[in-house]
Write a protein that binds this DNA or RNA. Structure first.
Lengths: 247, 247
DNA sequence: GGTCAATGGTGCGCTGCATATACCTTCGCG
DNA sequence: CGCGAAGGTATATGCAGCGCACCATTGACC
């Protein structure tokens, strides 16, 4: 009786509650986790992964499942395995060319930006309250490094990712670190095929510096404001180059 | 070679990349989705759920899996089923007593607050830019209703939930709505067993009103600031009453 | 008052993911 | 030169999820 007649306009909350439930398999999640870690440079080229038998324990999955993911990443050229004692699974030195963003990613890029906004604003606010000096020092170095990389987008982007994830770590909230990592992964998918003029990168990096200043001053509101502006920058670039601008 | 020696202190990012992979089953996710929707009042007492055969289509799961969840919720007293034509599955009129927060929830309440902070800050910022008048009007009514409910925490809380979720809907970002719903669910688990003096609720509701004012003025920074303060209020209450304060 | 259709309730077999376990192959280090 | 650490392979088992067919109940409609 209280359900609407079929095809009637439904309360928006109903759409959310009754939206499709799709559970990722362990294989899929593992593949994505390792894949983005490599693409983001969290696992540097040449780095050696823990041994399979150890890794599957950490991930709390079976070795067979882990190997499915490793094999897939090896075939796509992101990993290569070396047998025998002293061997292991290594990240490829020269990363394979990135795929252009899939249709699905392009369709929902606005959503991805929205979530990232939330995550990063929360990180800015919390980091301002909780960051310790020794956690901020490495971020200074990254800002310095990015200053010299305005011509090298790949290098810049990698430092950028480390900066944002490092900031997330300064909140001491593992969940936020995970969300930030995921968000950065999606952003990288979107922006890695886009031209970034040095002026834009310099401006963005100036905001990184401002952000650190606000955080050191324990100025949460200021940090959030700078972060919001920082993200708006990226979003404007995307809005100009990708389809489906909302307003 | 670039892996650390065993048991050496590892880079924090490694902890995130190699954190356990645990995929929720479809049954678990369904149970949680429906359960929190009921507990949050998104599915009002007495409301009728869509027929099983339709619901399992929407959720994109099999009827067997759906029924596992429905059966569990029926046994816990949240739902009751009526057979025959014109029957269906209904939300219990008098909700069963809430369980006290589980140990796991209590252990990670700080994390939950952190994520909620991010989500809600993002919502505040985006709603200020995107909310339409007709989406804000119902929120005015909720604020008015909450004004009269400072003595009735259950009623107040339900309006509160609707307010925050309504705000999320004003961002037009389904993903944010889902995250907000999840966050509200976790908050409800935490605060429903806590005494809330009327003054606290009145103060919180005044912030709701301010929030709407800022949003109408398209003042994103202001909205974010009010929201941050609003959430800090809840967090302070929790910090005083729950174990494991961080700093 | 009888029929029928919409609803929840039940059972069964199939498929595929994930696990656990054991064993093989390679190859550097001592 | 052999031990041990690493990747590579094979197989059996469990179980979640699916799809389907069918039963039982009961109000609505003629």
């Amino acid at each position: 009786m209280s359900t609407q007649t079929p095809d009637s306009p439904e309360l928006p909350s109903f759409e959310t509650v009754f939206a499709p439930v799709r559970s990722q398999t362990a294989f899929e999640e593992t593949l994505e986790r390792l894949g983005t870690a490599i693409k983001l440079g969290l696992l540097a080229p040449g780095a050696r992964l823990p041994a399979e038998r150890e890794l599957c324990t950490r991930l709390e999955i079976s070795r067979s499942t882990l190997r499915q993911a490793l094999t897939a990443l090896a075939q796509s050229g992101h990993l290569h395995a070396v047998r025998g004692r002293g061997g292991g699974t290594f990240v490829t030195e020269r990363p394979p060319p990135r795929d252009p963003p899939s249709r699905a990613v392009l369709a929902s890029w606005h959503e991805a930006c929205d979530v990232r906004l939330g995550v990063e604003l929360g990180i800015a606010a919390l980091a301002a309250g909780r960051a310790k000096d020794h956690e901020l020092a490495p971020l200074d170095e990254l800002v310095g490094a990015m200053d010299d990389m305005a011509e090298d987008f790949a290098g810049y982007r990698q430092a950028d990712v480390r900066f944002h994830i490092g900031l997330a770590e300064a909140t001491h909230s593992p969940r936020l670190v995970a969300l930030a990592t995921e968000a950065q992964g999606q952003m990288t998918d979107l922006i890695s095929h886009i031209a970034h003029p040095p002026e834009v990168l310099d401006h963005a990096n100036a905001q990184h510096a401002q952000l650190l200043t606000r955080i050191r001053a324990r100025d949460a509101d200021g940090a959030v404001r700078v972060m919001a502006e920082h993200l708006r920058g990226t979003e404007l670039v995307l809005a100009g180059l990708l389809p489906g601008a909302r307003d």
